[in-house]
């Protein structure tokens, strides 16, 4: 079986698109497109909202409301929105499937970005915030020069788990006839072409791992070394050997890629 998967993946005709079939590159592009659109929209909504809620401590019910979305099964949500919206778009394009899928992806991405951003800002040490105001910073200066940089590790981990969730759910969107790497899984299943199905799974897993790795690298170079604790050993004052993993801070809400 593994040999079959390998030969399916190494067949160049599976990578290029033809008039009848979209190849791996094409589906990868579609997958990334759907995911990127959803993540950008979610970020544009959740990041400013989260910073505002965390900074002002107002309207915290929004966070609870967003988290309640996670209790819904993502497949059910996807199917429900597709059957509601798709009939309005019968025609040549797949807009009727793209719109409900994007809505679901955005809905699933918002809670982790939002709650991590709020938690990140709220977790900033009280003494640090006090000092910032005491030095004469204005509210926005405290938010953008002090609270946001300190919240970055949590914001990043929220964005990373949102990304994983979106990649995973975008795969399932193939089940409601949309393109993306999930196509190979569901087509392979329908045609009992198991090498194709398993290759699809492999591609999706690889995509998720690579994206997470890239985001981890980005995080490494964006977050201050003073916060990550990635300082040269010779510089250390001799305590705190290993900085706590910021991800464990919001463990109970953060680690579920598909806990939608």
């Amino acid at each position: 079986m593994i040999g079959d998967v390998f030969s399916w993946l190494s067949d160049p005709t599976h990578w290029q698109s033809t008039n009848f079939d979209t190849g791996i590159w094409g589906q990868l592009g579609a997958h990334l497109r759907y995911s990127a659109i959803a993540l950008v929209i979610a970020l544009v909504i959740a990041l400013p909202l989260g910073l505002w809620i965390g900074h002002t401590n107002k309207a915290t019910w929004i966070v609870s409301a967003a988290n309640a979305i996670r209790a819904l099964p993502s497949v059910g949500l996807l199917v429900l929105l597709v059957v509601i919206i798709a009939p309005h778009f019968y025609g040549r394009t797949d807009t009727g499937y793209v719109i409900p899928t994007e809505i679901v992806l955005v809905l699933l991405a918002i809670p982790s970005i939002l709650s991590n951003t709020v938690a990140g800002v709220q977790n900033v040490d009280r003494a640090v915030r006090d000092a910032a105001y005491g030095m004469g910073m204005t509210g926005p200066q405290v938010l953008f020069r002090v609270e946001t940089p300190n919240a970055l590790p949590l914001i990043f981990s929220g964005f990373r788990s949102a990304t994983l969730q979106v990649i995973a759910t975008a795969t399932i969107a193939s089940y409601v006839t949309l393109g993306g790497l999930g196509r190979f899984i569901y087509d392979g299943l329908a045609q009992q072409d198991y090498p194709q199905m398993i290759s699809g799974g492999l591609l999706v897993a690889a995509l998720a791992l690579i994206l997470d790795l890239l985001l981890a690298l980005l995080q490494r170079y964006t977050v201050s070394r003073g916060i990550t604790g990635r300082t040269r050993r010779s510089d250390r004052a001799g305590h705190s050997d290993e900085a706590p993993d910021p991800r464990s801070a919001v463990l109970t809400e953060d680690l579920a890629p598909e806990a939608a």
Partner: peptide, 28 residues
């Protein structure tokens, strides 16, 4: 241990479902 478990959690569920059989030699 944390790296490995974190890695496993990164894999989308649908992918893990279809990857388990070939990894463990089960039916598809």
């Amino acid at each position: 241990m944390m790296s490995i478990t974190g890695l496993l959690y990164t894999i989308p569920s649908i992918a893990l479902f279809v990857l388990i059989p070939p990894l463990l030699g089960l039916d598809p």
